[in-house]
Write a protein that binds this DNA or RNA. Sequence first.
DNA 1: GATGAATGAGACTTCATTCAT
DNA 2: GATGAATGAAGTCTCATTCAT
Lengths: 226, 226, 226, 226
Amino acid sequence: MTEERRRRVPRRIREQQIIDVAVRVFSKRGYHASSVDEIADLAGISKPMVYLYLESKEGLFIACLRREADRLVRAFQDAAREAGPPDQRLYAGLRAFFAFVAEHRDGWVVLYRQAAELSESIAREVALARRAVLAQVAGLVREGVQGQGAQGQGAQGEGGDGAGQLREEDADFVAHSLVGAADSLTDWMERHPGQSPDGVALRLMNMVWAGMERVLRGESWVPHSG
Amino acid sequence: MTEERRRRVPRRIREQQIIDVAVRVFSKRGYHASSVDEIADLAGISKPMVYLYLESKEGLFIACLRREADRLVRAFQDAAREAGPPDQRLYAGLRAFFAFVAEHRDGWVVLYRQAAELSESIAREVALARRAVLAQVAGLVREGVQGQGAQGQGAQGEGGDGAGQLREEDADFVAHSLVGAADSLTDWMERHPGQSPDGVALRLMNMVWAGMERVLRGESWVPHSG
Amino acid sequence: MTEERRRRVPRRIREQQIIDVAVRVFSKRGYHASSVDEIADLAGISKPMVYLYLESKEGLFIACLRREADRLVRAFQDAAREAGPPDQRLYAGLRAFFAFVAEHRDGWVVLYRQAAELSESIAREVALARRAVLAQVAGLVREGVQGQGAQGQGAQGEGGDGAGQLREEDADFVAHSLVGAADSLTDWMERHPGQSPDGVALRLMNMVWAGMERVLRGESWVPHSG
Amino acid sequence: MTEERRRRVPRRIREQQIIDVAVRVFSKRGYHASSVDEIADLAGISKPMVYLYLESKEGLFIACLRREADRLVRAFQDAAREAGPPDQRLYAGLRAFFAFVAEHRDGWVVLYRQAAELSESIAREVALARRAVLAQVAGLVREGVQGQGAQGQGAQGEGGDGAGQLREEDADFVAHSLVGAADSLTDWMERHPGQSPDGVALRLMNMVWAGMERVLRGESWVPHSG
DNA sequence: GATGAATGAGACTTCATTCAT
DNA sequence: GATGAATGAAGTCTCATTCAT
């Protein structure tokens, strides 16, 4: 890995180099405030190459988006493939998530902090990419809680049969909550640098595990109980 | 709504008109993709008026930011002022939050979906505004859980004394989780239009209430319990 | 002279107040870089008043120009009215000039440092005002040297009859030289704050007095004398 | 002059073309009244090229300034390099000056008629450029008069030893006077088109040569001699 | 594979000027 | 006599994108 920027680099590699830089820049500045000029400069090539390989600024952004979403999804899948009881698997998923964000902060930002400023056509891509991530989480949640009645951690013995009524909607609700919380916690992590990704995952697990099942079963906390 | 667009509108009112429009536009397009031209047009005035009253695009954005943060914080405070047991108060807070977002979607987007693309000086303002919101939530959380041992909803009888160990950090963790989840759930709401803000708040309450206390007490879910 | 900015000031006085401020601002920033806004602000009135009284930015500038040219011309005339031998009178004129500039720096700058940036129609006015100043100097020069043969300071006894051949052109040449030198020396004065206007006038007098007569007589220094 | 406006001109050349035009425009209109649009148009290119090569309007102006100051200084130095007695050298310097101004009127105007309207940072540059020009003249003056006692043109035999007391300040005084006079005489030249630069230089030489030495020696004309 | 040269379009911002009170 | 409200026009500057080599 001689770091000298070589001429005549084959297309596949150049593309990756460009995307590497672009993720960094898009993450730092946001889509609109990023300039193709800067990206080309930092990639050590001229602008026409960017356009030759990635077609347009939108194309470049979409390429970034897809690569980062893929990476995150794969990290999730790898973690979830682990055998084990469902709570362990969800925990593993969350750990994978926080570890990914800690290591690929830029990728996460590109995926999740570019809501308002994008053109219609990019917004669609972003929605797709996020759907892919959310789907992973929702999957884990569904599996995890389905098994919870049998292997869960005790207290709620009211029967896992409620899990049969799992609706897509509920799993989606929980997945949104988890991903939203996790996203927000990346900010919290930045202000508490001592915290390991695993620690954050553990805390979050503690906070939601007990309640998740409830939600997926339908309400049980009664508003006016006080 | 006989809001006929009049000439010679006094400054105070014009400013609000401008900010109203700006919140809408910034929310729809994001900061950079918004143009002062469009905002002026939609406000029914010429660009120089915008600059005369709000100084600059940044000034305009900051004005939007502050107004919306104030509104949200006030909505929260009003809800939290209600008497009642702590879980009720947190529930009221969440309801207020989702109601606010449902009614002021644009304001929320301006506050919470403008991360990466902003200049240093605006980023500071955004951070401040968000801190104000987070502080409200953290406050509610702290109060709520401190009282939980005494007036809580039963199941966890392990004693409220653990609440004494509440650390700022933990309340902040929970507040980040809640706000992040809530933010993300606004997307969920958009895809499930039948859901009332109160319903969403209830679901979220169910999901986190049981676990919050755990987090604030220190961990209790054990990773390798399986 | 209670300095409180009063309302309902009569036109004549308001006009002078405005012009006072305008001379200062035009001098500091130049014509184009000055804004009517700033002038109105500093004058403590609203822009429409400026337009009511002075018609336009150009009108305002021309008013400044005329007033300052008048003042300078009058200072010159007062000095030149002094009786005395011609060299004394020229010296008195130069002293008056440097004293004026030292006290009305802004006025001078407005008159003499606004060459390139002005519109055709203002440039005409400027030329007129400068002509008035140059004419004063040229007048002094002509008188002074005409008498030089009789009452001059000695050395050149070749006779004052050459003075009869004075051409307008020559007096004008000398006047331009003197005013140009004097203008430039105002910069020199700024860098040598110890120097009194009178001292500068004396130095300049020394430098040009002997040679002036020559020029007005036709050449006498021969290029290839070396 | 087959300078057909070509496409794809190399940077170095384009830069010079731009500066050529800019000097003309800045000279004609002054800094603020000049528009980059006009400069680009006259240079036969689009605005972005101007900004690509010269950074900003200020950068463009500074580039003009430096080039013209360099040219003038070099013209001076070339003239002063001529061997010969000191009066001849000063005369050569003045001739060079007037010849330069006659041929590069625009350059001179850019250098010397842009006083009041410039931003702080440009004003610094202008001051620097002018200093360079003044320094050349002051150098010539110093040399010239130092030798005057020995090789001078006769009349003043009071001893060249006074020349040893030359102070920086005095040379500077004379230089300011000369440059100011010369600047002002460029206006005179415009109104007397028949005059050659050499003729003007000769007249000025006549006017100041005799007196210069006096100034540099300390005063000798006595105010109240009459 | 690679790039220096070039631009149309559009952004923010300011200014001289006027209107209605 | 005086002003707050309002604007058309113009200016500086940046950007995504392409052409010709």
